[in-house]
Nucleic acid binder design. Structure first.
Lengths: 112, 112
DNA sequence: CGGTTAATTAACGGACGCGTTAAACATAGG
DNA sequence: CCTATGTTTAACGCGTCCGTTAATTAACCG
C-alpha cells in the first residue's frame, strides 16, 4: 500500500481526469456536477477522483447546502517539485552552468 | 490504460522503491543487482520496476556482457515539473509577490 | 562443452484502481 | 411530509500493479 505522502501525490497526478480536474480548479472553486460536466464518466466516478485528490491533500472541500465545493490546494505540488529538484542538475541547462562555475571555483581553490 | 506520457511519468514516480532507485542512479550508473541490493525484494521485482522506469523514459539501459546497466534520464522530470509550474502561483510566496507586483503595475496603468 | 553469474520471462495470487448501475443520504423548499 | 436535487456509498467486473518462485536466456570462463 502506498502509505507515504509523496506516493499519494504522484499516484493522484497519474490520472489524466484528475489532472484535468485540478486544471479546472485553478480557475476557481467548483461543485461536483460542475467538475463532472466536461467528462463522459458518471458522477460516482468523479466523486471517487475527488476523494483521491482530497486524500493526497491536493484539494479541500466545503459544504454549502447540498453542494460540495472543491478548492485547489497546491502545497503538495510544491512538495513534489521539491523532490524533483534533487534531479534538476540532470536536465536544467542553467543548473549545469552553475555546476561548471562551482567546479571552476573549486579548481581555483585547490590550485592556490 | 494510462497511455499519455505524463501519466506514465507520475505513475512511475508513485512507487517508493522506484523513487529510491532513481536516487541511487543519481550517483551514477548501476547494474540490476547493485540496484536490488538495498531492497528486501526479489530480483525479478526490481527488473519490473526498471522496465516501468524505462517505459516512462526515466532511465536508459545499456548492456555490457551479462550486466545491464541503468542510467538516469531526468528529462521526464523536467516535463513533470513544467506541468506543475502552472500551479506555482498557488503555493510559491515569491510568485505571489510577483503577482501582487504585476497587479500593482496594472492598476497604475489603468489609472493613468 | 559444462558450469557459473546476471538478468529476464512465465505463471500465478492478492490487492488495488477505475469504471459501471442501483440504492442511500442530505438538504431545500413547496 | 413529500419530493426534487446534489452527492456519496454499495456492490460488482475487469484490468493492472506488485510481489512471489521456477524456468529460461545470455554471456563469460575454466
Amino acid at each position: 500500500m502506498a502509505t507515504d505522502r509523496l506516493s499519494l501525490i504522484f499516484a493522484a497526478l497519474a490520472d489524466p481526469t484528475r489532472r484535468a480536474i485540478l486544471a479546472r480548479l485553478a480557475e476557481g472553486e467548483a461543485t461536483v456536477s460542475e467538475l463532472a460536466e466536461p467528462f463522459a464518466i458518471s458522477l460516482p466516478a468523479i466523486s471517487r477522483h475527488l476523494k483521491v485528490l482530497e486524500h493526497a491533500g491536493l484539494i479541500s472541500r466545503s459544504r454549502t447546502a447540498q453542494w460540495r465545493s472543491s478548492r485547489l490546494e497546491a502545497e503538495p505540488l510544491r512538495e513534489a517539485t521539491e523532490w524533483m529538484d534533487r534531479y534538476r542538475r540532470f536536465w536544467d541547462e542553467s543548473f549545469r552552468r552553475l555546476d561548471a562555475h562551482l567546479r571552476r571555483l573549486q579548481e581555483n581553490e585547490e590550485s592556490s
